[in-house]
């Protein structure tokens, strides 16, 4: 069945039909953001908590806009670190939220599996805004929507994900979403930053970024974090840019008009050159716009009444 269930934990757990439902639902929400009054009463009276254990300005703001444009009441909670560090376990946090009768929780956490952990313990809808290295489903969805806007389809598209795939939840969500909708996916980066057995998920491994540029219709360029150099995965950011950077010179040799995506925030001059990020091939800003629409769609679809209400109501007509 297409309806989404209680939570959005990851694209791995959704069917192609469900993913398409979300993308199709996002379309009318794009229009809402263009109106003079960017608000519809669809989630009026719902309380939503943005529970962010990792600092994130852009994702949190995007969710906040999505929630407010649907007329929901939102509360931002910036929680500290891991359960061990802050002294209140995730279980207790979950129970407290449930005791306050929160309708929905948007959670970002540094541990993989945290979103599922929360979802299994509270009745509220749980939306994963990024859990450790596991998934960032709304980012995957907005990337899909952006590609679909540009190319009219996902099936048969060749998308290369370039960068630190090992530590990237964005990469994993993209891989699941793209494969389920019929795209061909490749990953490209230094071998130290590619996960074990990644090919078994159904993706091709391309050793050099030049190969990716030759092959792909679109590149999704991942952010490279300074910590990776400090942890010894790569010798330096400078070398990373020289060998793997998506630069204007490299793109000039592309056989097609490559579309460039980036989940942000960008390290200009490291994984991507400014000219590329600001250039005509970049869809980085449309990604941001689509982000609000996709998140509105997800909130709208998840906030549907509980299944027993659906049976009691029965109709579904607009009279």
């Amino acid at each position: 069945m297409t309806a989404l269930g209680k939570d959005l934990i990851g694209l791995e757990y959704l069917s192609a039909e469900q993913i398409e439902l979300i993308l199709d639902t996002a379309e009318p929400f794009k229009e809402v953001s263009e109106r003079p009054i960017k608000k519809v009463p669809a989630l009026r009276g719902k309380t939503i908590v943005n529970l962010f254990f990792e600092a994130s300005t852009r994702t949190r703001i995007s969710f906040e806009f999505a929630e407010k444009r649907l007329s929901a009441d939102t509360v931002n909670v910036a929680a500290q670190g891991s359960s061990v560090q802050k002294g209140e376990t995730l279980v207790d946090t979950a129970r407290n939220l449930e005791a306050m009768r929160i309708d929905m929780v948007v959670i970002r956490h540094q541990s993989s599996g945290a979103a599922q952990f929360l979802a299994q313990r509270i009745r509220s809808n749980v939306i994963n805004a990024g859990d450790g290295k596991h998934e960032h489903p709304t980012q995957g969805l907005l990337d899909l929507l952006t590609l679909r806007d540009r190319f009219g389809r996902i099936r048969g598209l060749k998308v290369a994900i370039v960068g630190d795939v090992l530590h990237s939840r964005v990469a994993r969500s993209n891989i699941w979403g793209l494969l389920k909708l019929g795209a061909e996916v490749a990953v490209c980066g230094p071998a130290t930053l590619l996960p074990r057995k990644i090919e078994e998920l159904g993706v091709t491994v391309l050793p050099r970024v030049e190969d990716a540029i030759q092959w792909a219709d679109a590149l999704n360029v991942l952010r490279l974090q300074l910590e990776r150099m400090q942890a010894g995965f790569i010798p330096s950011l400078r070398e990373y840019n020289r060998v793997f950077g998506v630069t204007t010179e490299r793109l000039a040799r592309a056989p097609k008009d490559l579309v460039i995506l980036h989940p942000g925030p960008m390290n200009r001059g490291v994984e991507i050159d400014s000219d590329v990020a600001d250039g005509p091939h970049s869809v980085i800003l449309p990604q941001v716009t689509n982000g609000v629409a996709v998140r509105m769609a997800v909130l709208y679809l998840l906030a549907g009444g509980s299944p027993d209400w659906a049976q009691a109501a029965g109709r579904g007509e607009e009279r």
């Binding site: 993989s112 450790g132 290295k133 074990r196 078994e200």
Partner: peptide, 15 residues
């Protein structure tokens, strides 16, 4: 264990 399951779950593996 470092393998396909740790890759899927996004957890750091021990080879």
């Amino acid at each position: 264990h470092e393998g396909i399951v740790s890759t899927r779950l996004g957890l750091k593996g021990i080879p």
